[in-house]
């Protein structure tokens, strides 16, 4: 009996040691999420892909970044990437934003993935509030950090009622808010996070991405995953899905455009431009520059070659 018992204990010890060894060899696994957490996240992601636009609840983990600082997007990225992946992270279009740099370092150091600032090299692009100007393809995944996943938050606070409204596709109050916006202001002023109907069924908040990016979600070839860490929700837009901004038939949806605006750095007019004080970014001769910094940089490099 005792011999058997001690043999068992030895076996268990050996198993534990070998597991520890393997964990130490694969720093990603000891890093931030264990395999169990990843599996749970992947299940939530799969559900989200199966029901486009539906907000899937998940058990949001504590992250080394505060909730509200990209913890939702980070968890999705960590559940997706392995050592073979190439990751790009942008913050408002900028690869060099402090938040982007920190998240990128965190992902690559704990998963073994490599980093890039070039869209065409990336397998996963994690972003806060922009879609890169370059077209992503069907092999790439866009991960969006979402502060407020509930598009109806502005018209209803009650959680149960929100659930009912989505369940019954009862979006009339959202329409009323658009109606009132238009009545009060002559136009629909809602700028970022414009509500969209996904797959003809669920209305989503398009995170605070600018209107400029909204039409690019419609029938996009790539998969978009939205993660809200604080609100513990994941939702998705699978490739080739209808994404229609909510607007009236006689009030066309329009993207941001300022007459005559062009990037002070690369001269682009067909890109999302942001207004900056004259001295920033070397844009002394103008008040607009591209929001997507790597895209802008590449354009300048190409122009230089030409």
């Amino acid at each position: 009996m005792s011999a058997t018992l001690s043999e068992s204990i030895d076996r268990l010890d050996a198993a534990a040691e070998s597991r520890l060894d393997s964990l130490l060899e694969s720093p990603g696994d000891v890093g931030i999420l264990d395999e169990h957490a990843k599996r749970e996240l992947r299940r939530a992601i799969l559900t989200a892909v199966c029901v486009p636009g539906y907000q899937v609840p998940f058990g949001s983990r504590e992250m080394p970044v505060a909730r509200g600082w990209g913890s939702g997007g980070l968890q999705i990225t960590l559940a997706l990437v392995g050592a073979d992946d190439v990751v790009k992270v942008i913050d408002q279009g900028d690869d060099e934003g402090v938040n982007a740099v920190n998240l990128r370092r965190l992902v690559t150091e704990t998963t073994g993935a490599t980093e890039t600032t070039e869209v065409d090299e990336a397998t996963v692009v994690q972003t806060r509030h922009r879609i890169p100007e370059d077209e992503l393809d069907e092999h790439q995944t866009l991960v969006l950090q979402v502060p407020v996943p509930e598009p109806l938050r502005g018209v209803e606070r009650n959680i149960a009622e929100l659930g009912r409204m989505h369940a019954e596709a009862d979006y009339s109050r959202m329409w009323v808010s658009l109606y009132e916006d238009k009545v009060r202001n002559g136009v629909i002023t809602k700028s970022t996070g414009y509500p969209c109907l996904v797959g003809g069924r669920y209305v989503i908040a398009t995170t605070p991405i600018p209107r400029w990016d909204v039409p690019r979600l419609h029938h996009a070839p790539f998969l978009s995953l939205f993660g809200a860490g604080r609100e513990r929700k994941i939702y998705a837009i699978p490739p080739d899905t209808d994404v229609e901004p909510l607007t009236f038939d006689d009030v066309p949806f329009e993207v941001e455009r300022t007459a005559g605006a062009r990037c002070a750095l690369c001269g682009a007019t067909e890109a999302y431009l942001i207004e900056v004080p004259p001295s920033v970014g070397g844009a002394e001769d103008g008040r607009w520059i591209c929001s997507d910094t790597s895209w802008c940089r590449r354009r300048r490099a190409t122009d230089g070659d030409a």
């Binding site: 329409w175 009132e180 006689d250």
Partner: peptide, 26 residues
């Protein structure tokens, strides 16, 4: 009624619920 919405908005609520998506018609 939703007291925090305009008179027109309260009617728009019913019209959009019935599928009307034309601002001018609303």
């Amino acid at each position: 009624l939703d007291l925090n919405v305009t008179a027109g908005g309260n009617i728009a609520d019913r019209l959009t619920a019935a599928g009307c998506r034309h601002f001018g018609q609303i």
